[in-house]
């Protein structure tokens, strides 16, 4: 078992070392000229950039992130149950495990429907739909 994880560790190390290695090879290969006749500013769309991009803007992302976290945790909890399902089918106690999965996924489905009806799944919220903040 441990050798499997040692292998995974080596994969991550080798993959992680690839990037600095490539940058190093590039640094050794390329001619040493820097910023000849340019301002060094970001390319953006060809014009000189105006202002910083690091501003606050409505990314419509917060609710999606919350829904995602709830779903992902439920799915992570669902995987162990799903792993046992085959054994349960073979030993004849599939009903119990199925009820568990049903309860889990049913809750997920209810939550999804709630979000759907509330309009939280709509990326673009029209002006008519906007709720004032109280």
């Amino acid at each position: 078992m441990e050798t499997g994880f040692i292998t995974i560790f080596w994969y991550l190390v080798v993959a992680g070392l690839t990037v600095p290695l490539m940058l190093l090879v590039g640094a050794l290969l390329r001619p040493r000229q820097r910023n000849v006749g340019r301002s060094g500013a970001a390319y953006e769309c060809g014009e000189d950039p105006v202002g910083s991009p690091w501003v606050k803007f409505n990314i419509r992302f917060y609710l999606v992130a919350i829904v995602f976290i709830i779903f992902d945790v439920e799915i992570a909890a669902l995987f162990p149950v799903a792993t046992l399902y085959k054994k349960a089918v073979e030993s004849g106690s599939a009903g119990l495990v199925f009820a568990e999965i049903f309860a889990f996924v049913g809750l997920l489905l209810l939550g999804l429907m709630y979000c759907w009806v509330r309009g939280d799944l709509d990326w673009v919220k029209g002006i008519a739909q906007a709720r004032p903040v109280k």
Partner: peptide
């Protein structure tokens, strides 16, 4: 590959 390696390693100002 050679073209990419030999190209200037550019990081925008302020990045």
């Amino acid at each position: 590959l050679v073209k990419m390696l030999a190209k200037e390693d550019f990081i925008p100002k302020g990045a």
